[in-house]
Design a binder for these strands. Sequence first.
RNA 1: GCCCGGGUGGUGGAAUGGCAUACACGAACGACUCAAAAUCGUUUGCCGCAAGGCUUGUGGGUUCAAGUCCCACCCCGGGCACCA
Length: 850
Amino acid sequence: MQFAEFSHQGSQTTSLGPPTTSGSSVSIKATSALGRYNPLKIEKKWQKYWQGKKLFQTKDTVKGKENFMLLTEFPYPSGNLHIGHWYAFAVPDIFSRYLRMRGKNVLYPIGFDAFGLPAENAAIKNKINPKKWTEQNIAYMTKQLQSMGATFDWSRKVSTIDPEYYKWTQWFFIQLFKKGLAYRAKTLVNWCPKDKTVLANEQVINGCCDRCGTEVVQKELAQWMFKTTDYADKLIDDLEKLDWPEVTKTAQKNWVGRSRGVEVNFLIPNSKEMIKVFTTRADTLFGATYLVLAPEHSLVTKLTTDDNLDKVNKYIQEARKKTELERTHLDKDKTGVFTGAYVVNPVNKEKIPVWVADYVIGQYGTGAVMAVPAHDERDFEFAKKYNLPVKMVICPNYPAPKCPVLEKAFTDDAYLVDSGEFTGMTSEEGRNKILEKLRKEKLAESKINYKLHDWVISRQRYWGAPIPMIHCSKCARLPARPAGGPDGQGYQPVPEKELPVKLPDLEDFKPTTDGRSPLAKAKEWLKTKCPKCGKDAERETDTMDTFVDSSWYFLRYVDPKNKKSFADAKKMKQWLPVRTYVGGAEHNTMHLLYSRFFTKALFDLGLVDFNEPFLVRRNHGVILGPDSQKMSKSKGNVVDPDDLVKKYGADAVRMYLAFMGPYEQGGPWSPGSINGVFRFLNRVWSLFEKTKIADKDSELEGVLNRSIKKTGEDIENLHFNTGVSELMKLLNKMEESGGSKKDKIIFLKLLAPFAPHLAEEIWFTLLKQKKSIHLENWPKYDEKFLKQEKIDLIIQINGRVKGVLKIARGVSEEETKTMAMSSEKVKPHLLGKTLKRVIFIPDRLINLVV
RNA sequence: GCCCGGGUGGUGGAAUGGCAUACACGAACGACUCAAAAUCGUUUGCCGCAAGGCUUGUGGGUUCAAGUCCCACCCCGGGCACCA
């Protein structure tokens, strides 16, 4: 390869400061091949060039190259890119470019998650149609995204509002419906009174709407749901094979909330009925002194004695009025009422009273619990308040039990006491034996419970993919099939050849007050024929939760224009599952759980051949405002990336974001600190521009080889901050020594993923290259040179540092010891002492113990 | 309450059990300039004139050697939470 000689001109009047917008008086004289570093000019130029050459359009296969999909969470088209988008997309782009240089066929896709409430609310506020509003935003944000200079493959862009996209969202719904995995049922659901729609459990944060913060209320409504609970076990167990952050895994485990225990039957005297309770502590059964029903429990009214009926009814009504927030978060002070009824404790046949209290959750387990005040904090509190007996049956010491008077519940496992034939057993043993005995009497069965609920996907809002179902009132009158069955309650799927069910254009798309979706206002659209009986029928008017759209978008990137299928099977095999997925931790229990469920369901339907969508997951942090607060317009602490790009250029912005701290951590934006990176880029520029270099031998081989290794490893581990600092160190060294031509070329290649435009400019303009630096291979390092570096070997006396030896690697212990002991700094410390021990760590230190 | 992270200079942060404070930011001083900006150079953990001593949230421990490992505690961030 031939390189142009580096030119150098003596006097420079060029300012390397940020180009000011206020028409500075500095005279600029371009005096070299490069001229002044003007990021704006060169960045636009190279972005155009890359686009024109289709440099980042990814082929399905390239001979000899391994496919690698690097996925980031596609953005919601809110209208403007904020600095967080740059963090989410521009920083992983460093990894994308690095992977290319390492010979991978990289797909770094982009798209828009464009349906959803915020768009609709913004459209209402701005009195504009959501479609128009969203499309404008997509167009604008596309331009902004392109200014990053990222390696997105725009030819594979996906948008969830494209009918060709949501056709498949609907198609998937129908496949799930046919399998019984999508069903309609009347249950207690979360209702946001402000957004006037139902929300999934995952979208309720501390009892409030995830979108608008309004307190959520419980309503009993018929809704479409996905049977996520069918996959509860797999959603936990399969986490094991994934390389995901521990936080995400535990969040998902907690969310699914698997708990193994026993379901115990408490018989009602003189009745065929019984009350089932779930417990994980069957060992405490002898200590059950009362039983509690949730207010929603079906047996409450039946059991309540006449003289208690008024009181109980009043209590239930009060409980109903409470919001989820009040009941589960604020109202920890427990209340309840006695029903007048008794049940029989199966282990000792004792009659215990039945209470109703809203600290018991109707939706979990059986909606009833046995109360063991001595060994459960909640029961203890309740028993104290209502003067119910506390009976201690687990004791920390046995034999010779000296059970203390309880001031609070004793909840640990220990030894059973006062428990009949089970007395003296450990908790573990007691649980097993008691279950064994009760099982024989058909009074108990082992049972696993989950906190996970089925995913409510119906939304009573306009801006979403219509649920592709048809309701026929005639067919509904036919004998009902079991709930959740394929065509229960008179609903038929839209015939697949009629997909997509297009979202109708509506003048008035605002949410209604009666809880029905605004789609009901599209009178013509609503009318259709029943696919089963052919009579007049109506379309379903609910739309799907946007999280359905985003549960499968990564599949579409593989084959975005396919009209016959959501994606071609062969192409899926080439690209999926996703190798690395980078995104925000806020999706731990939403998007990531939904996508996993969706993938597992598609796997069971035989539509994909993998049951986990994302092999490696990495979370990134959040960029806060300079005041360490979450950025928001109202706080006035928003950092605008466009302004920064104008001032410093895209290279500086992306590189600073990479440098500012550990990527998984994020942190506050520090307005001044970007100067450091900007200065660094200017110094790189100067190094190439100003210094004249003979093609001399490198003096930097040790440092250089270490940098190749370290920078590469740092990028692979997403430790971008230390990667940048390594390049800064290398530049410092090169400025000292000048560096050979070869060194500089290597340096430029290491820099290329971080500052792609600047690297490209120098590569073409100064080094007169004809092909993009981004098509180059990542430099190789040579272990041999790593060993050549001189090292500082530390001399310690009794573990305290006393001196340093500057020596080559690989010096023997004997030699080092001799050198150390004869060192002027060390000698005085050894006077009159005997050497007891020598600890020698090769190439690191020698510690003389005296 | 339970489960994860984390606590290191004025600031962001670095450190396979082996020189704590790399790399930056900021600051001070100097050079260039009539001047300023930019740039370049020097200094910059704390105490001390110095020799030297002290220092990774606190207190113990293991080790020749601890920011790193163990025990107890304090504080901050996040997740779950009346889930029986």
